[in-house]
């Protein structure tokens, strides 16, 4: 089991209940859509996974890390097993495409030779070998998101989390991103993707987790966007 949650609650300091009584488990190698309207708790749920937020109550296990016995000074260890991608890419503007990818490995002190090899590998995977020396602002949105995905994969995480990765992209580019995520998933990485994109969810049928007002409304294998 890669992700395990038992009766997890999240209440923010201001009293807002973002998640309540979430129980679910995700296996290694799965591809999961997380859907639901804005404010349903998708972002909070994702932040819990990489300990950007801490659960208020309940048991959680991610990539073998038991959150009930977790020391916060070890947060970086958990994060090295997780790749995260956002709607707004969050690339470093002053670095080129290859430097952006390498950055993720440099800051965890990977050996220089490994970094060169891995960056090359990833550039091929996301199809941006030709753009290696370009800066983010010279790329289209879809290309920038592919750089972000490459960066998220740099340290070979077991789990890739994508928070609305196609939110800023047109349909064509969104398709490309999904195909890339599918390929990554085929290579063994577990993928969790929060999305609003009805077409994508309906076209590439996968397990669907639907959140509504902080509760898990639906957990359906090969689900569609709208409940039938």
């Amino acid at each position: 089991m890669l992700i395990e949650m038992q009766h997890v609650f999240k209440t923010y300091k201001n009293g807002v209940v973002a998640l309540s009584d979430i129980t679910l488990s995700i296996d290694k190698g799965e591809f999961v859509y997380l859907i639901g309207p804005s404010g349903a708790g998708k972002s909070t749920w994702i932040k819990l996974l990489y300990r950007e937020e801490l659960p208020s109550k309940g048991k959680m296990l991610v990539n073998g890390f038991d959150f009930s016995r977790f020391k916060s000074r070890h947060t970086h260890r958990l994060r090295r097993t997780i790749g995260v991608v956002f709607q707004d890419y969050r690339l470093i503007e002053r670095l080129t495409v290859e430097e952006n990818i390498a950055f993720a490995m440099e800051v965890v002190e990977a050996p220089a030779r490994d970094i060169r090899r891995r960056v090359n590998e990833l550039l091929y995977l996301v199809g941006l070998k030709a753009h290696a020396k370009r800066f983010p602002r010279e790329l289209s949105g879809g290309e920038q998101q592919r750089v972000a995905i490459a960066r998220a994969l740099a340290n070979k995480p077991e789990l890739l989390i994508a928070d609305e990765p196609t939110g800023n992209l047109d349909y064509e580019n969104s398709l490309q991103i999904i195909k890339l995520l599918e390929e990554i998933n085929l290579q063994g990485t577990t993928v969790v993707m929060a999305t609003h994109d009805r077409d994508i969810v309906n076209r590439f049928r996968r397990r669907v987790l639907e959140l509504s007002e902080g509760r898990l409304l639906r957990d359906e294998a090969k689900g569609v966007y709208d409940r039938q």
Binding site: Y50, R73, H76, R77, L78, R79, R80, T81, I82, G83, V84, R90, I92, E93, F103, A104, V107, V108, E109, R151, A152, A154, N155
Partner: peptide
């Protein structure tokens, strides 16, 4: 921005 990315990919507190 850079610190955000460092945190995200698991740079240690001291490294940051």
């Amino acid at each position: 921005e850079e610190v955000e990315v460092m945190r995200l990919v698991g740079a240690s507190k001291w490294y940051i």
